[in-house]
Write a protein that binds this DNA or RNA. Structure first.
Length: 256
DNA sequence: ATGCCTCAGCTCCTGAGA
C-alpha cells in the first residue's frame, strides 16, 4: 500500500491538481496540509467520487489538514491531545491497522521570534503524544510538512542558510528526538537522487534551479520499517501551472 | 533588498509562508 503527504497550499486553488494526481496515483492514504479553508468548504464529494473517504480539520485562511483513505479511517483525533492549540495542524486516524498521523508543523518564521517559541513548544507536545501513540499503536506513520530539515543534505545552500529557519540546530534537535522515539525517515532508507527536495521557493525560479529544501517527511515506526519498499518525492506536480510550492512524498509499504 | 512569488482577506495592500 502507498501512503502520501502533500502540502497543497490552498485546497481551493489546488483541488483540480489533487484530483488529477490521485487518478494517476491511487494511493491508499493521502495526508494534505495547508487547506486554508473552513470545514464547510471542504470538497468531500469530489474525493468521494474518486472512491476516497475523507476526514478533515479546517481553518480560515491558514493551516488546515485532511486525511483521504480508500478504506474507512477510524479513531480520528484532531490536533495534539493535551496541547492547547488554536490552529488546525494535525489529523490522525487508523487505516488498515496502521495509525496514520498527518501534520502541518509550525513554520517558526525566524529563530528568536514568538512563532519560533511556539514551534518549539508544539514540537515538545507532538513528541509527548507520539510517544504515547507508539505504545498504543506500534504500526505508525507520521507524515506531513515538518518545516525542518534533517541536515545539510536537505538544503540547497547549507552555508548560506545555516541557522536560518528550518535549518537551526534547535529545530533539528527536536526532529531527531522525534525519530529517537522509534521512527525512521523513509526517504533515507533508500538510495535517493542527489539534491532531493520537497519544497522550492516560488520566487527567483527556485524550482527551475533546484534551490529547495527537504522539509516534508514520512517517518515510519520500528514495526513498519521492515516492510518499507520505497519512498519517492514526486516532482511532477511542481511542474504544473500554478503549482503548490511543495511536492508530494509517497511511501510504499509491503504487507506485514 | 526588510526583494524575488503565491494565497487569503478587514482585497488594489498586507501578513504569512518557507
Amino acid at each position: 500500500m502507498k501512503l502520501a503527504t502533500w502540502n497543497v497550499n490552498s485546497l481551493s486553488v489546488r483541488l483540480p491538481q489533487v484530483l488529477d494526481w490521485l487518478q494517476t496515483n491511487p494511493v491508499e492514504v493521502l495526508a494534505m496540509q495547508e487547506l486554508k479553508m473552513t470545514d464547510d468548504k471542504f470538497p468531500k464529494d469530489a474525493f468521494e467520487a474518486l472512491g476516497y473517504h475523507a476526514q478533515w480539520f479546517g481553518q480560515k485562511t491558514y493551516n488546515g489538514v485532511a486525511l483521504l483513505s480508500r478504506s474507512p479511517t477510524t479513531d480520528i483525533v484532531k490536533n495534539i491531545p493535551g496541547f492547547d492549540d488554536d490552529m488546525a495542524r494535525v489529523i490522525a486516524g487508523t487505516v488498515e491497522g496502521i495509525r496514520v498521523v498527518g501534520a502541518y508543523f509550525p513554520n517558526g518564521q525566524e529563530p528568536g521570534s514568538d512563532k519560533f517559541e511556539y514551534k518549539m513548544e508544539w514540537l515538545k507536545g507532538m513528541r509527548q503524544w507520539i510517544k504515547a501513540e507508539l505504545e498504543l499503536h506500534p504500526k505508525l506513520v507520521l507524515m506531513g510538512d515538518y518545516n525542518i530539515t534533517f541536515d545539510d543534505l536537505d538544503v540547497w545552500d547549507p552555508v548560506g542558510l545555516q541557522d536560518t529557519i528550518h535549518c537551526t540546530e534547535e529545530e533539528r534537535y527536536h526532529l531527531r528526538a522525534l525519530v529517537a522515539l522509534g521512527l525512521h525517515d523513509s526517504h533515507r532508507l533508500f538510495q535517493q537522487p542527489s539534491k532531493s527536495y520537497s519544497w522550492w521557493d516560488y520566487r527567483g525560479g527556485g524550482f527551475a534551479r533546484n534551490r529547495g529544501l527537504r522539509i516534508d517527511h514520512i517517518l515510519v515506526s520500528n514495526a513498519l520499517k521492515p516492510v518499507v519498499q520505497a519512498c519517492v518525492i514526486d516532482k511532477l506536480p511542481r511542474k504544473n501551472e500554478r503549482p503548490s510550492d511543495h511536492a508530494p512524498v509517497v511511501v510504499t509499504l509491503g504487507s506485514l
